[in-house]
Design a protein around this nucleic acid. Structure first.
Lengths: 141, 141
DNA sequence: TCAATAGTTGAGTCACATTTGAATTGTCCG
DNA sequence: CGGACAATTCAAATGTGACTCAACTATTGA
């Protein structure tokens, strides 16, 4: 992962130690500090050309690896690598059928993905969330 | 980018040259070969802890950089780097207010993100798309 | 004009995800 | 059984994106 953000120790700079800056409405306080980790696991899993294409393909139903193979133009070794990432993310499920392995989109995959989007709360609540700053930023004081 | 997938020249292996493999229902043909590139630009832009958190924060309205700064615990240089990626992706817009720069979520950001999800077509069409293979894969012949 | 604040840009480094190739497992068919 | 096919795993090489540091622009206020 990258930087772990502010979630954790790091005694320097708690909250409320701004040097007096800004103060205009565009500097509000936290409303709902959602945990980014699970969302990022999902988003990073789909933010890849091969994996995105595989999921797109699985959207219309179950496919064996050999079929997916024919549509992404990567080595089967590499495809396996990407499929494992999708499995680990819980976005797909597998079942063996004779010599072949079938991949299926997890039933809750789409729902989990939409919820993983930043600002996804606005999707369900219905509020369009647009320039919610109370005082309109007092242009050029 | 990573591999560009099959979209492009590459004379080896067109379609319909499967060595006779599979043939069971779980190996169908392409229904809608959507272009992954624009979707991936968006998804890669949000699949990062800092950028995800920033967007989540912008979901409730405009914020200046100095405010975003207080919530992600990265250097201002690094925050600028991430903000530029969000700008380039067209997910946020900026406006200068005196000494400060305000960032606002693009009005179509959420809509574009939901459409960028793989299998997003199923979201609008309403079909739940589940195991569309006609013949039930004749388990263990 | 000069110092201070707010933010951006550019060059360089580093870690990690992606990629590759060889070896391995599991299943079917002769 | 032994060979061929389907798919996964392992270890090593590569590349790209995240990060750091220094320099720069822009605006405000003394």
């Amino acid at each position: 992962m990258t930087q772990l953000l502010k979630i954790g120790p790091k005694p320097t700079k708690e909250s409320a130690d701004k040097p007096s800056s800004c103060a205009s409405g565009a500097c509000g306080s936290a409303p709902t500090p959602r945990d980014p980790a699970p969302a990022l696991d999902l988003l990073q899993a789909i933010a890849d050309p091969v994996r995105w294409t595989v999921l797109e393909r699985l959207a219309d139903g179950t496919h064996c690896v050999c079929d997916l193979q024919a549509h992404v133009d990567v080595s089967n070794t590499l495809l396996s690598y990407h499929l494992r990432i999708l499995r680990d993310a819980g976005l797909v499920t597998t079942s063996r059928r004779g010599r072949w392995v079938d991949y299926t989109l997890a039933t809750d995959a789409l729902a989990r993905l939409t919820e993983a989007l930043p600002a996804a709360s606005s999707l369900v609540s219905g509020s369009s969330a647009q320039a919610s700053s109370p005082s309109p930023a007092a242009a050029t004081p």
